Amino acid sequence: MKLQDIFDHLSHGELRNVFLTDPSRGELTEENKKQLLTHVRMGLTALHTRFFIKEQVHSLVLEPGETRYVLDLPDLLRIESVKDTEDNEYLLNILNEPESLHTPNYRTLVVPASLDATMLLVTYRADHKPFGTEETYYPPNMVDIDLPPMYLEPLLYFVASRVMNPIGMTEAFHDGNNYAAKYEQACQRLVNDGYPLDQGYHQDRFHSNGWV
């Protein structure tokens, strides 16, 4: 998907009032372009956080006597699962289970002192591929957006809500809140269609391994 695809959708249909253009030229100003890119970046992160869109695997070398590891990964959103190099998967965030690994925050992994492994493979939910302010000077059809097409609709509503919220009420109707509600509805439709919020590992693994 290209940034131009997003701009095209924002400039047509019910979102046409959200597309910030120079009225005299009918196109984005550089300042409005930067503003929209900020909203797009926030929307991409919101969707990658909410849905399990992209995963990465990080090899974590364990140190003797060390049980707490901070994963300094710029695209890390949430640790999803942990395996060893022999493909044995470990329990994760199971309360009152001494063999379980835990994540006290999104980028910290605590392993039991008794864990018999020298390396772990940490699967994590990853953020979108970043793009910086220099992209504001590129033609929109040259800027890649790291998002599968089925998530485009909620992204557009997210951007619309962010743009319209500062405007507030117009004749007892709040455009920003309206688009925020449409964003939630679009996300719920994706859930209903089977697009995953998470891996669904923990509950199934806990039962299949015979812990209960």
Rank of each mutant, 00 (worst) to 15 (best):
Q4L: 14
D5H: 14
D5S: 13
F7K: 07
S11A: 07
H12E: 14
E14W: 13
T21P: 02
P23G: 00
R25W: 07
R25V: 13
G26F: 09
L28D: 01
T29P: 01
K33T: 14
K33Y: 09
K34Q: 14
Q35M: 05
L36E: 00
L37I: 13
T38P: 00
H39S: 13
V40R: 06
V40T: 13
R41M: 14
G43Y: 11
A46T: 09
R50Q: 09
K54H: 14
L60W: 04
L60F: 01
V70Y: 12
L71G: 00
D72V: 04
P74Y: 09
D75Y: 07
L76Q: 12
L76E: 15
I79P: 03
S81C: 03
V82D: 05
N88T: 11
Y90V: 03
L91N: 05
L92W: 06
L95Y: 06
N96I: 07
E97K: 06
H102L: 08
T103E: 01
A113D: 08
A113T: 04
L115S: 11
L115Q: 13
A117R: 10
L120K: 13
Y124M: 08
K129W: 12
G132V: 14
T133K: 13
E134V: 11
M142Y: 11
M142N: 11
V143N: 10
V143Y: 09
V143Q: 04
D144S: 04
D144T: 03
D146P: 15
L147G: 06
P148K: 11
P149L: 12
Y151L: 14
Y151H: 15
E153M: 13
E153L: 15
L155W: 06
L155V: 05
L155R: 06
N165P: 01
T170M: 07
T170K: 10
A172F: 07
Y179Q: 02
A180P: 03
Y183P: 00
E184D: 10
L190V: 12
V191E: 08
D193S: 10
Q199L: 15
H202S: 04
D204V: 08
D204F: 08
F206G: 00
H207P: 03
N209I: 00
N209D: 00
